[in-house]
Write a protein that binds this DNA or RNA. Structure first.
Lengths: 356, 356
DNA sequence: CGAAAAATTGACATCGATGTCAATTTTTCG
DNA sequence: CGAAAAATTGACATCGATGTCAATTTTTCG
């Protein structure tokens, strides 16, 4: 290409890119005000007259202007980025949390960076410290079990970094948190089994380092007590929310001399495992043994019979926590009351009245 | 708190926050060079002497400096952000893609923003255009079926926005893409069933607007032809990758006069549905009917019997595409050869030799 | 050795927003 | 009405990096 053409071409490109980039100065010119005033309108500051506001707003609309995040971040020292930390074996749960957070981020013009973690990693706190430093995130959302990672939380408290926790066990910190009424829901599920005539109800526990693990056990015990049924330690098996742990727990429960006639597994993966073991042992579900889960995971619909379980307000938990966090970041709001959201029983085919 | 104390306290806070912010000027001072030279080292530019480079690097390490992304973005007009677009019913698949992309983003110091989409939404292209404008993303990774969203792709081509596609159908565009050998894998799976003695092999098709849907059908046909078995249209049922579509397809296949003795479902959800229908019809798996899936989704391990399926290199697809995209953004590399990654058969319990 | 070429380095301007503080305009009220 | 108070607006500096271009240092080679 000859030099003249090359130059012309480069000018065209420059022109094109210029057309795309609308700055606050273009808006200011169009509205015949100063850039600072445009800035005031964008940031919804108080002292702008209605007339000016309308003028600027129509200029913004006409030019299709949207502020440059980098410039704004540089000046305000905010990144407008949230980090979402998780270490969870259920992809569907994590995806739901993401969607919930995103819905709020979109409205508030924040970005979300996600970070899969390993709860047992010795370097977790350091890794997150590095992430915060590098990405300059404004705040973090911690999901279980990260919600109770002592070292990380100590670091965040020390550095006064904003964070919100989903379903934490330690609720003594001043940082806000959200949670679901797992205990009540677990009690309702146990009530449901009792109402079907079951008196020997086994439970497969989840990981007790999750709040959910503790609360679901508590709900189960509460329900039994209310119905004046004994809490039989032979009917309580430890699991860790994984399918494999569910298999061995179910095997122990169902091969006893007096096996339970109903089993409440503290999540759907362990319930699925229980169904598998029941099949292997030649037990029909729900005729010989009723099985209930928790979480309303996709697998609960794909099993045969379909699984009675508990739906959790996962997206709502996430969006609430994002809302709290963004408020904290932007308005320096310090303490907010913990938020409790409600679960719902989903009765499907895997539970039925006891066989006489 | 009295005014004097309050003032002292605020000064301490100011001091603290100042301590945290190390700028390029601090590094320059410590290394006794100009900020521009520090910038050269950070960006691995050529013309820096080894001596200076070492000096600057140790200053960076000593101070624990990491560059301010906002300032850099503002100057270079790059956001160092990738967008990952998806519309997929399998959370596990999407999570794997995310993890793959993240692994590369971490190395390259990019951030990833994720965007759940609705393929059938009329405003998809506009929505993404708004996202690009607002978040100023440097490039996009499109996963199926978004990989073939005509309107969106036309927009990206027009605006010359970098993007990489995962498993696209239309491969005539100059934009690079990555894909797995679904066709061969589907043929291998069909070969496997044939080798077990099956000659009546049904297939439940996936959504043919996904490359995977088309390729898996092609592999099935290829295998039958190679084995000189007829392609019987009664044995081909349309599904859309959902569990529900699998149920109705399986019902049609298995209630024929001469039902197939093996069914290859084009993903694991539809295979799970087929298992359910088989159970309902009183057919044992694999004694009466062999069932195979595709994807190695979590559910394939939770079913009873466990599901024979195909493992896909999902994380690798994602990390490769992120790698291609970042190279394109940073080095303006134009065309790269499409990348094909290999699937693997996972033989479990749901397939067996035909009953005599 | 010493001039020319190449490599290295730095001074200064700039990206596009908002913070600070002062100037201007409008409102209040005796 | 007119001074004081309140509300609105704008001028200018600045956040922390990198681009441009020129100055300086080092290397090359007759």
């Amino acid at each position: 290409m000859c030099a003249v053409l090359k130059y012309a071409y480069s000018q065209i490109l420059v022109e094109c890119s210029r057309l795309k980039k609308i700055t606050i100065y273009d808006v200011a010119k169009k509205a015949s005000v100063s850039p600072k005033t445009v800035s005031r309108v964008i940031n919804a500051e108080q002292s702008v007259s209605t007339k000016t506001k309308t003028l600027v707003e129509s200029a913004i609309a006409a030019l299709g202007y949207s502020p440059n995040t980098s410039a704004r971040s540089l000046r305000t020292k905010r990144s407008y980025i949230l980090a979402f930390l998780y270490d969870n074996l259920s992809p569907a749960y994590v995806m739901d949390l993401q969607v919930g957070i995103l819905s709020i981020c979109d409205k508030a013009e924040f970005n979300m960076v996600i970070r899969p973690c390993n709860f047992t990693s010795e370097t977790l706190a350091q890794d997150i410290a590095a992430l915060i430093k590098r990405s300059r995130v404004d705040g973090l959302i911690l999901s279980p079990p990260i919600s109770d990672h002592k070292e990380l939380i100590q670091y965040l408290e020390e550095k006064q970094i904003d964070y919100v926790r989903i379903a934490p066990i330690n609720t003594k910190l001043k940082s806000s948190y959200v949670f679901a009424n797992d205990r009540e829901a677990a009690a309702e599920m146990t009530d449901h089994l009792i109402s079907l005539g079951h008196t020997s109800i086994g439970i497969i526990l989840g990981d007790l380092s999750h709040l959910a693990g503790q609360e679901r056990l508590a709900g189960y015990k509460n329900s039994l007590k209310k119905a004046e049924l004994p809490v039989n330690s032979n009917y309580i098996e430890q699991g860790d929310f994984s399918f494999e742990s569910g298999e061995s727990a179910a095997l122990k429960l169902l091969t006893q001399k007096q096996p339970p006639t109903a089993i409440f597994a503290c999540n759907d993966y362990m319930a699925a495992a229980t169904m598998k073991i029941a099949h292997k042992l030649g037990l029909r579900v729900p005729e010989d043994v009723s099985i209930a889960g928790f979480d309303d995971a996709p697998v609960s619909k794909y099993l045969w019979p379909t699984l009675t379980t508990v739906w959790q307000p996962v997206q709502q938990l996430a969006s609430q926590s994002a809302d709290l966090l963004i408020n904290k970041i932007l308005n320096q709001e310090t303490s907010t009351a913990p938020l409790e959201l409600r679960c719902e029983l989903v009765i499907r085919e895997s539970t039925a009245a006891i066989k006489k």
